[in-house]
Simulated scan of single mutants.
Amino acid sequence: MKHLKLCFIASALLISMLISVPAWAFTTELWKFPETLSLEEAGFKMEVPYDISYKRIEVKVEPLAYEEITPVNDYFVVSAVESMVGNTGTMSKPVRLLFSFTHLDYYRASRLNMNLPVGSFRIGYWDNLEKNWVELPSRVYWNGSTGVVEAEEYIKSGQYALLWSYKPGATLSESNNKIRIMLNLITIKTDVDPYIKEGRTMVPVRFVAENLGARVEWVEAYQRVEIFKGVDSINLWVGNQKAEVNGKSVPLDMAPEIVNGRTFVPLRFIAESLGVKVYWDESIKTVKLSTFL
C-alpha cells in the first residue's frame, strides 16, 4: 500500500511538471554561435545570427493557446508564442522570427476571400499597455500552397504572433522572392542579384569569395578567375566546365559566365571548395552558408 501511494505521488508530480513546462517549448542560450530553433506546434522558428551578444542570453519560448490571446477586432491571430528573455540589452543584432502558414490559414484569415493580398499577413508584438498588437516590419514568402512570414527583432519577453490585418488601408507586408544569401545566419548583400540557372545558384565571384575571407584575381588574357585562401587555390575559366582546386582538375555542374560585365560562378562549388557548408532554404528563397561544421 505504501509503495502504491509513493507511485501515485511520483506520477502526480511528473504530470504536474509536464503541464507546467510544455514538452514543445524550447529553452536556450543565445551567444556566439548561429542556430535555428523550432516550435513545430506553433509553426514558429527563431534564427539566431553569429555573435549576437558578448553575454549569454537565456531565452525560453512556448506556444500560446487561443484562450490566452486577447481578441482584437483589427487582427486575426493565426498562431502565437510567448517568450521569456534575460539580458536583452546586450544584443548586438536582432534575431529573425519566422511563422509558417498554409492555404487553410490564408483561407480562414481572409474570411474565405483568397483574392485578398497575402501581404495582409505580418508579425506583431503584444503591447500590454495599449492592449493591442504592434506590427513589426515583415516579409512574406508564398508559393501558392504554403508560406512564411519573417521579421527581425531584438527579442524581448512577451507575446509574438502571426497576424492578418483587417485595418482599412493597412500597409501590405513586403513580398519578395529574390534569392538571398546568409553567412552564419547574417544576410550579406550583393550589388547585383544572384540568380538560378539550371538549378544552380550563380553569384558574382568577388562578392562570395571576399565574404568567405578569400582573395580574388582576374586574368584577362585567359578569362580566368583565381581564388586564394590560406594554402588553398581555385582556378576557374569563363565558359569552361572544368576547374582546378589545389592543382587538381575538378568538373563543374555549371561553367562561370559573364553577365553585364560581372563574372558569375556556381555558389555551392566555391563555398564547399573553401570548406564552407551550403544549405538551400526553399521556403524563404535563401542560400545559407555556415563556417560552423
Rank of each mutant, 00 (worst) to 15 (best):
M1Y: 10
L6P: 01
F8A: 13
F8Y: 09
S11A: 15
A12V: 12
P22D: 00
P22N: 00
P22V: 02
A23D: 08
A25W: 01
T27Y: 00
T28W: 03
W31N: 10
K32L: 14
T36I: 15
L37K: 15
S38G: 11
S38F: 08
A42Q: 11
K45Y: 14
V48S: 01
V48G: 01
P49K: 08
I57T: 04
I57Y: 02
E58S: 15
V59M: 12
V61W: 03
V61T: 12
P63R: 09
P63W: 07
Y66C: 00
E67D: 09
T70F: 06
T70W: 05
Y75M: 01
F76Y: 14
F76L: 04
S79Q: 12
V85P: 06
N87T: 09
T88E: 12
G89S: 14
G89A: 14
M91T: 07
V95Q: 04
R96G: 06
R96E: 13
L98S: 15
S100Y: 05
S100N: 11
S100Q: 11
L104I: 14
Y107M: 14
N113C: 03
P117N: 13
G124M: 00
K131M: 10
K131T: 07
V134H: 04
L136S: 03
S138K: 02
R139V: 10
V140K: 01
W142E: 04
W142D: 03
W142I: 05
W142N: 08
A151F: 11
E152F: 14
K156T: 13
A161M: 00
L162I: 07
S165R: 05
Y166C: 08
Y166D: 04
K167D: 03
P168D: 10
G169W: 03
G169F: 05
A170K: 04
A170I: 11
L172V: 08
L172F: 03
L172A: 06
E174M: 09
K178D: 15
K178P: 01
N184G: 00
N184W: 01
I186W: 03
T187H: 10
K189R: 02
D193W: 07
I196W: 10
V203F: 05
V208Q: 10
R215M: 12
R215L: 14
E217R: 13
E217T: 11
Y222G: 14
Q223I: 02
R224N: 12
G230E: 10
G239E: 13
A243R: 02
V245D: 07
A255Q: 11
E257S: 05
E257Y: 09
E257A: 00
I258Y: 08
V259R: 12
G261H: 13
T263W: 01
F264I: 02
L267I: 09
L274M: 08
L274E: 00
G275D: 12
G275R: 13
S283E: 11
V287E: 08
F292G: 01
L293P: 10
